[in-house]
Simulated scan of single mutants.
Amino acid sequence: MTDTALPRVRAEIDLAALRANVRTLRAHAPTAAFMAVVKADGYGHGMIPCARAALEAGATWVGTATPEEALALRAAGVGGRVMCWLWTPGGPWREAVEADVDVSVSGMWALREVTAAARAAGRTARVQLKADTGLGRNGCMPEDWPELIAAALRAEADGLVKVTGLWSHFACADEPGHPSIKSQLDVFREMLAYAEGEGVRAEVRHIANSPATLTVPEAHFDLVRPGIAMYGVSPSPEIGTPQDFGLRPVMTVAAALASVKHAPADHGVSYGHHYTTPVATTLGLVPAGYGDGIPRHASGSGPVLVSGKWRTAAGRIAMDQFVVDLGGDEPEVGAEAVLFGAGDRGEPTAEDWARAAGTIAYEIVTRIGSRVPRVYVDERHSGSDD
């Protein structure tokens, strides 16, 4: 953090670190194109600035979950290829076709809707067919694949669609050696072979998410889709830390202490008095809570760096604030309390908060709410996008 007077709380986003992470991840898959996944507002980091930074670092594709995210990128002038994959009936298919967004199709209903949109728009839709190779979420089941392939080829012959991609998603790539990884790759290759044997000529075939990009080179195919790793967070502690892969966390969340006061022994702290002071001490008030995305499940365990020392959330994390026991130290009101960051100044990381809350680091960064301002470091574009 750089300001001498901190706001209540803020999230500092290091775009130089994000660019470096993209370059590092590209080196892990040097023969594959790179899709920067920026869904969920860039995993909480800010979709548009992060998309631009990733493209500057060599990404050629940008991936989103929802069509609204994809259309927001286009409205902001973000170039490159944009793909979105989470569609529901009646979605903005025509708008996506007109914005040159690659749309994912997992079943016949979606193919019908996108071909109707292409007719209405008077232009060819770019379509990527998703295979369910074992994840059990979206995607076409192997037994339904022939019907979808045949229908897509008919639509392509009519000039309504161009099949630009064949793709799938792993279930357990974050668990090294999990048998489903090989199983899904085998199914994916079989479904690719069928589609190509029928005449599909896709630009890209892809299945590799962050952990597969880092640890399953045989899954790289034509394109990789890093998400959480691009933001410098390990997809799984089991496969390694960010530092193990040459990645740096991009987000730092810090607040300014709103109160520092003396408290006697046996003084209750926060709702329910789940914490009482064991001895006379000082209490610091961190003005951020679950209304800002700080997980309530980390009550009593969430770590914070204040004056060079780790402190722990004392008692319940409330909607707007929580307390740390300062152990008699007396930092000034307004002193910086770092909730998490890169870890190289001794501060906690998102992974530390994930362990404290019994969740994953993905959730920690993504849940940081909209009332926490994002402050971008090393942003190369003028204007505000957040």
Rank of each mutant, 00 (worst) to 15 (best):
L223A: 03
A208Y: 02
P211K: 05
V200T: 02
T282R: 12
P176K: 06
A258Y: 00
S210N: 05
T215A: 11
E218C: 01
D186C: 13
H262Y: 09
T281K: 11
L285Y: 06
P176Y: 08
H267G: 10
T277N: 11
A171I: 08
L214M: 03
P217C: 04
A265M: 00
E175M: 15
A212P: 07
T282I: 05
G240M: 11
M251V: 09
M251C: 07
A263T: 00
G177W: 06
P237L: 14
T277M: 09
D266Q: 13
P211N: 12
Y275V: 10
F188L: 12
T281Q: 12
R248L: 02
E238I: 15
G177P: 08
H169S: 11
P176H: 03
T215W: 07
H267S: 15
I207D: 04
G197N: 03
F188S: 05
Q243Y: 12
P217N: 02
G284E: 08
Y275C: 08
A219V: 04
E218S: 07
P242T: 09
G240H: 12
A193Q: 08
H220A: 03
A219K: 06
S234L: 12
R225W: 05
S168P: 07
T215R: 07
A208M: 00
S168C: 08
I207P: 13
G268W: 03
H273K: 15
P211M: 09
G284I: 05
S270D: 07
V204K: 11
S168L: 02
I228E: 10
T213G: 07
L283K: 06
A212Q: 11
H178K: 02
P278I: 07
L257T: 00
A263C: 03
V233N: 08
I181D: 07
M230L: 10
Y271H: 09
K261E: 01
S210V: 03
K182H: 14
P278K: 14
C172G: 13
D244L: 09
P287H: 00
I239Q: 15
H267K: 12
P242W: 13
I207A: 03
P217W: 06
H220Q: 06
A280N: 11
L185F: 06
L285N: 13
L192I: 10
G240C: 13
V204P: 04
R225E: 10
G199P: 08
F245Y: 08
S168N: 07
L223T: 04
S234D: 11
Y231I: 12
H262N: 06
D174N: 15
Y231T: 13
A195Y: 02
P237K: 14
V253C: 00
E238N: 15
E238A: 15
G268Y: 04
I239L: 14
F245T: 06
S180P: 12
H169P: 05
L283G: 10
G272T: 07
I228H: 09
T213N: 08
P249E: 00
A265Q: 04
V286N: 01
Y231S: 09
T281F: 10
Y271G: 04
V286C: 05
L283N: 03
Q184I: 01
E196W: 09
P278C: 10
R205S: 03
H220R: 05
E238S: 15
V269P: 10
V204W: 05
L257E: 00
D244C: 13
P237T: 15
A254F: 03
V269H: 05
V279Q: 15
A193W: 05
Y275M: 07
S236T: 09
A195L: 00
H220W: 07
A173E: 13
G240D: 12
L257D: 00
P217V: 08
E190M: 09
T277F: 08
